[in-house]
Design a protein around this nucleic acid. Sequence first.
RNA 1: GGUGAAAUGUCAGAGUGGUCGAAUGAACUUGUCUUGAAAACAAGCGUACUUCACGGUACCGGGGGUUCGAAUCCCUCUUUCACCGCCA
Length: 423
Amino acid sequence: MLQIQKIRDEKDAVIAGLEKKFFGEIELLDKLLALDEQKRGVQVKREEMQARLNKSSKEIGMLMKEGKRKEAEAKKNEVKNIKEEGLGELSNEFSRLEGEVKDILLQIPNVPHESVPKGKTEEDNEVVKTDEAPTLSDDALPHWELAKKYDLIDFELGVKIAGAGFPVYKNQGAKYQRALIQYFLDYNTDAGYQEMQLPLMVNEDSAYGTGQLPDKEGQMYHVGDDNFYLIPTAEVPITNIYRDEIIDPKELPIKLTGYTPCFRREAGSYGKDVRGLNRLHQFDKVEIMQLVKNDQSYDVLNEMVAHVETLIKNLGLPYRILRLCSGDTSFASALTFDFEVYSAAQKRWLEVSSVSNFETFQSNRMKIRTRNAEGKTELVHSLNGSSLALPRILACLLENNQTENGIAIPEVLQSYYGKKVIS
RNA sequence: GGUGAAAUGUCAGAGUGGUCGAAUGAACUUGUCUUGAAAACAAGCGUACUUCACGGUACCGGGGGUUCGAAUCCCUCUUUCACCGCCA
């Protein structure tokens, strides 16, 4: 959520940013500012009236104490008049305006960072860095066939138990997943991230906090009876740890990591995109998150990108880094770098990580603050990234490392997996 | 799931209708003293909105109500604790 003060002070810059992001309702800004001004006008009137009432009430209290009943009664009537002047109406008006202002603010996406290239679709993303796309022999198999051949993943069984998009990892496949998760977590904790094990369901407040609500309501599984949402990413519970907190500056930066399954409805997806492990309703992911002082977030973003890059390199996968264009940058993000690894058998790049700086967009919603040098509270910047999403990594590891004698396991994973090859 | 108790500032903990944004203690910050530290003493020490400013308003788990006036009374929800039941 953008800060209303910022919209007031830098309206033109905000509008330019939102236009760059192709936000379709720029006119909301004018409506917002008008409502906000109206709100403050009503607020001043209401508080002035309330102040008079409070003052009189205190006087009544004093008169009662002194035993001056009659005068107190007279005063009571006087106070009643204040109420009839319309205090109730003003209060209702104020609440209404306050609600409308908030509703609009929740609908406005974050303003993109100046370095974000303008563009509408993924075609316009800027390739920051890229490996050569390797080629495999013509008889190389896609991962869903390798999964069958080596009995690693059973997609049909998942359909039987739950539905499409809920694969069952079996035997060596399950073990490979576990090895990857453990390696990722160790890699992150070695870099100073503290490991957290988190709730897989969150309440409404948490979903609003990170920006999933109201923007992505239909993308989350909702447990109606208890009004819980299944997390679409660990970002939600892990960032909400600090909701409504004022963090001691000495504790910053806060660096957390967590492994969780993620649940996404993926309404509207279809076709070859969803084949095999490419797009699932439930998948595993290890996430990293940082909360930092507001002048450090872009350095930290680079640091996190480098962190993920090394992780992918360690796995030996061909990858590229994209700076997302304005239209492809998510609702809450100011700047996002995507990592894609190359699936040689499918001959396509697959997104495996997304590293974003949200600046104060999330912390403003969640009221995550710290103190500046003067001791005043100020919002922190929040960042997060995947390190990494499992299924597509697994897909590429299977496809790219297939040999006549089985599927080779990258060296860094061998101690976790216990073998050098799947056969 | 049942019964009972509770929820107050960073923490502990007073406060049951009227100068209560809230006693007291601890922690913390600053100063005095000290070679330094400790101790002692003194002062300070919630958040947010609003106003050019003085100031004003709101917040004592959340929401609603009664009243001229609510931390305090009523309703409701949530959470915590205790005991019972069930259970990995």
